[in-house]
C-alpha cells in the first residue's frame, strides 16, 4: 500500500511539473498579472490615503495579498483542474486508479500547494524589493499559519469542484468567489462572526506574526483554536459536499460529461 501511494504521488507530482512547464506562458502571465494588480493597489492606497497610510497598513496589505494569492491559486487549481479534466476526457481515467480519486486529488493539491508556495514567495520577495515594505519571514510561525489559513479556500475548492461535477459550467460563480474571499479576509474583527469566516483569522494571525513580529507561541491560543476549527470545518464541509456530488454524478452518469 505504501509503495503504491508513493508511486501515485510521484506520478502526480511529475505530471504536475510537466504540465506547469508546458503551460509556462500561462504560469508566468498569471504571476505578472498578480504582481501588476498588487502594485496598482499599493500605489492606489498610498495616493488616496496620503499620510493616513502607515507602514503597518502597507505591510498588512502585503500579508493579506499573499494569503489571497495562495487561496485563489489553491482554490482555482482544484476547481478549474477538475473542470479541465472533464473537458479533456481524463476525469474518468483518474477515477480508475485503484487507490481512488481522493488520493490523486490530495497529491495534486499537495503538489499545487508546494508550487504555489514557491511562486507566492517569489512574488512577495519581488513585491518587498519593489515597494520597500519588508516583512518578517519567521518560517516556523508563518508556515503553519499560512497552511491553516488557506485550508478554508481548499474547502471551497472541493465544494466548487463537486458542483462542477454536476452542473459543469459554473465558471462565473468561481470568479465571483475570488472576490468574496477578499471580503471574508478583511471583515472587521469587531464583527462577532468574522473570526469564523474563511481566511479571516488566518489573515489576522499572519499580520500579528509578519507585521508585529510575534512568534507562533505568543499568539492567543483561542485564536489559534478558532483558526484550526475554521480550517477543519470548511475543509470537512467541502469534502462532504464533494463526496455527495460524486455519488450524484455516478448515479446520473455525469463523470464523463462536460
Amino acid at each position: 500500500m505504501l509503495k503504491e501511494l508513493f508511486c501515485v504521488m510521484r506520478a502526480v507530482f511529475r505530471q504536475q511539473i510537466i504540465m506547469m512547464r508546458r503551460y509556462m506562458f500561462n504560469t508566468m502571465s498569471s504571476m505578472v498579472t498578480l504582481y501588476i494588480v498588487f502594485m496598482l493597489l499599493f500605489f492606489g492606497v498610498r495616493a488616496v490615503g496620503g499620510a493616513a497610510v502607515t507602514t503597518a497598513t502597507l505591510e498588512g496589505m502585503v500579508v493579506g495579498y499573499a494569503l489571497w494569492m495562495l487561496s485563489i491559486m489553491g482554490y482555482s487549481d482544484l476547481a478549474w483542474g477538475l473542470i479541465q479534466e472533464a473537458q479533456m476526457g481524463t476525469l474518468e481515467k483518474l477515477y480508475l486508479s485503484p487507490l481512488g480519486f481522493r488520493w490523486i486529488c490530495g497529491f495534486r493539491q499537495l503538489t499545487g500547494l508546494i508550487i504555489t508556495l514557491v511562486m507566492v514567495t517569489v512574488l512577495v520577495g519581488i513585491i518587498m524589493l519593489t515597494t520597500g515594505v519588508y516583512l518578517r519571514l519567521d518560517l516556523v510561525s508563518v508556515l503553519p499559519l499560512l497552511l491553516l489559513g488557506v485550508l478554508p479556500a481548499y474547502g471551497f475548492g472541493f465544494m466548487s469542484a463537486g458542483l462542477a461535477l454536476i452542473y459543469k459550467r459554473i465558471q462565473s460563480a468561481f470568479q465571483i468567489l475570488q472576490f468574496v474571499f477578499v471580503g471574508f479576509m478583511v471583515a472587521p474583527a469587531s464583527w462577532p462572526i468574522s473570526a469564523y469566516l474563511p481566511l479571516n483569522m488566518g489573515n489576522r494571525l499572519l499580520n500579528q506574526v509578519m507585521v508585529q513580529g510575534r512568534r507562533l507561541w505568543e499568539l492567543d491560543p483561542s485564536d489559534i483554536g478558532t483558526l484550526v476549527l475554521v480550517a477543519a470545518a470548511y475543509c470537512g464541509l467541502g469534502l462532504a459536499l464533494f463526496g455527495r456530488m460524486e455519488t450524484v454524478a455516478r448515479d446520473r452518469g455525469l463523470l464523463g460529461h462536460y
Binding site: 503504491e4 501515485v8 506520478a11 511529475r14 505530471q15 510537466i18 508546458r22 483518474l94 486508479s97
Partner: peptide, 15 residues
C-alpha cells in the same frame, strides 16, 4: 504530454 509521459503517468496511478 508526450506518449511516454502519458504511459508513465497512467501506470504510476496503478502503483
Amino acid at each position: 504530454m508526450s506518449a511516454l509521459e502519458n504511459l508513465d503517468f497512467f501506470t504510476g496511478l496503478y502503483g
